[in-house]
Design a protein around this nucleic acid. Sequence first.
DNA 1: CCTTTCATGTAACCTGTTACATGATTGG
DNA 2: CCAATCATGTAACAGGTTACATGAAAGG
Lengths: 191, 191
Amino acid sequence: MAIEHAILGLLSWRPLSGYDLKKKFADSLALPWSGNNNQIYNSLVRLHEDGLVTQEIQYQENLPARKVYTITDKGRADLRQWVLTTPELPELHSPFLIQLAFTGVLTDEEIDGLLAKYEDEIDLELRMQQEKARRVSETPDRSPREAFLWKKIVENRLDSYQHELDWVLQVGAEFQGLKKDWEVGKHGNNG
Amino acid sequence: MAIEHAILGLLSWRPLSGYDLKKKFADSLALPWSGNNNQIYNSLVRLHEDGLVTQEIQYQENLPARKVYTITDKGRADLRQWVLTTPELPELHSPFLIQLAFTGVLTDEEIDGLLAKYEDEIDLELRMQQEKARRVSETPDRSPREAFLWKKIVENRLDSYQHELDWVLQVGAEFQGLKKDWEVGKHGNNG
DNA sequence: CCTTTCATGTAACCTGTTACATGATTGG
DNA sequence: CCAATCATGTAACAGGTTACATGAAAGG
């Protein structure tokens, strides 16, 4: 499971608690998980059972106890092997494209509206992610090589939004241009 | 659920059986589902229960009976409403980026190897999808407007592979250029 | 003889989400 | 007084996959 290896990866940098990991995932642009408890706490139990991490309970004054996890040699070996496995293809989940596929029943204007809404959403999301990327550095105290790769990973994600934005702008523009042809073609209007 | 609306969308074109739908999904570049039985047959049961489709059993000589589903007015209304809902943002699932994020333990050459493998895979997939796009037309007997939109949907998917390919080529090239700097920076090698 | 096509359906599993549950401490 | 932070965990659900199960007919 990828999230277990992502957890192992973060633990290979320094020991962390479940709560720490949760925040890392929630704040990260590079690690695309929501940081929900279920996955993290259950993954940690499995990693512990498999001997890939060790657990140390730290009792604190005035605060709940923390379970701090440290990667083991077995864990490092497992991580290394996983990182070297043959890469999988990326998958794009775009519910909007499905919607667009079945707009046959809509008017040209309704489709214009949908495209415009989608454009606004992508644009907003892109700006927010760019802003977030500017604020937080995800690779403190890491090597220049790792800093470079993480920058490229974040770029990949931001570029895919930019690419989507470019696409919708172009579709919108071409759609405008073609509307007249369609009107001529059918000598009437649609609905 | 999006796949139920995709099914409803296809049924809005013409009545189809579960088996027909399965093939449509399996062959489609625009509809990103594998076409597994579980989803399709269960979705059809739900759509039928909700009165969005009607079912007609067609008995055949020398072949199993077909259950052919036809969209109802209620189904068309439901589809129209869904198509008009506010678009959701696309999600990119890229396990490779997670792998790359934790390559700290690898040598520069091992990372080169990973990038090259990923490039090959994306390139191969892109060619296969392009070939498939050339072979099959997914919008027979549809309006020019719908043909245009479906072309754009397929373009979106192909472009996202092309974009990924461009990205990995650039990362690979930059990585080559920086290797020397890193060597100089640490006056040694890594592993 | 074996594989593919036709056609329907079920079972088991994996990954991910939101929401619920508990409970002390700190800060506005 | 209310919300946020710390910290762990569980439950219910949604969406997707592969594999199993059945069985006739056609084609190489």
